[in-house]
């Protein structure tokens, strides 16, 4: 399929040779795979409706500062972009791409007055045995912490038992290597979930075709919807 620049509603995307080289260098962290761009102008926020797909599940989580909480504390009251992930994922079309995309989305949203204080980002690990709060804190780096206009929370669970209802609720497939095939990564279709302030999943993205500008527009659509409801 033809691939060309994704026109941003607010700005044109930059695509210099140096950028490409940098990105290819990034790809070398994991597998060899080309990357490409979408080729459409995303619809304008507020001109379309995002359906109520399913309620976001609840469950026991623990944050990067080892504070225990319920997931619903992170999926209600604000528009939430939630990524189910694990830190050891090295498939650059998976969790690393999601991390990168979320960082882009967060950066764009923090420029928006309308989004400040009304949007959050959550990365929730489905590998509790490895992804301790300390590991999640290291993974999040400078993004960890809530003192930003759009906070990014890095959550994990204390056990597989705690994780179960959330995986089931999000219908997230995860398979682990059999013992005889140890060393392989967890197998999963990486999805991001956009959740409204009432805790309803309103959009599901796959990183195979993830355009940050589309996600930003969807978030703005939910913010406009919320504002209209308040009015």
């Amino acid at each position: 399929m033809n691939l060309s620049t994704t026109p941003s509603r607010k700005r044109a995307s930059g695509w210099g040779a140096g950028v490409l080289a940098l990105l290819l260098a990034g790809a070398a962290l994991a597998h060899e795979a080309p990357r490409s761009r979408l080729d459409f102008t995303p619809p304008v926020p507020g001109t379309y409706r995002l359906e109520r797909i399913m309620p976001a599940p609840d469950g026991k989580v623990i944050d990067a500062q080892r504070q225990r909480a319920r997931l619903k504390n992170y999926t209600q009251g604000k528009v939430t972009l939630l990524s189910l992930m694990y830190t050891a994922c090295s498939d650059e079309t998976g969790c690393p791409l999601a991390f990168y995309s979320i960082a882009m989305i967060k950066r764009d949203l923090e420029k928006s007055v309308a989004a400040r204080g009304k949007v959050r980002v959550v990365s929730l690990s489905f590998d509790p045995e490895h992804d301790t709060p300390e590991v999640m804190r290291a993974y999040g780096g400078n993004h960890v912490g809530g003192a930003t206009p759009v906070p990014w929370h890095f959550l994990t669970t204390e056990s597989r038992g705690d994780l179960a209802p959330m995986l089931t609720g999000f219908d997230q497939d995860v398979s682990r290597p059999r013992k005889e095939a140890a060393g392989k990564e967890l197998l999963h279709v990486l999805k991001l979930f956009l959740i409204d302030r009432d805790g309803w999943v309103r959009e599901i993205y796959t990183t195979s075709y993830l355009a940050p500008q589309v996600v930003v527009n969807d978030i703005e659509t939910l913010l406009l919807e919320a504002a209209a409801t308040v009015d």
């Binding site: 950028v19 990034g26 962290l29 795979a33 650059e92 990168y100 960082a103 075709y209």
Partner: peptide, 20 residues
């Protein structure tokens, strides 16, 4: 993961948009 995060942060400065 931290390296990837750093990579992402660096890429962010360029304003590029990627899709797998």
């Amino acid at each position: 993961g931290a390296i990837i995060a750093a990579f992402a942060a660096t890429s962010l400065a360029t304003g590029s948009a990627l899709v797998a």
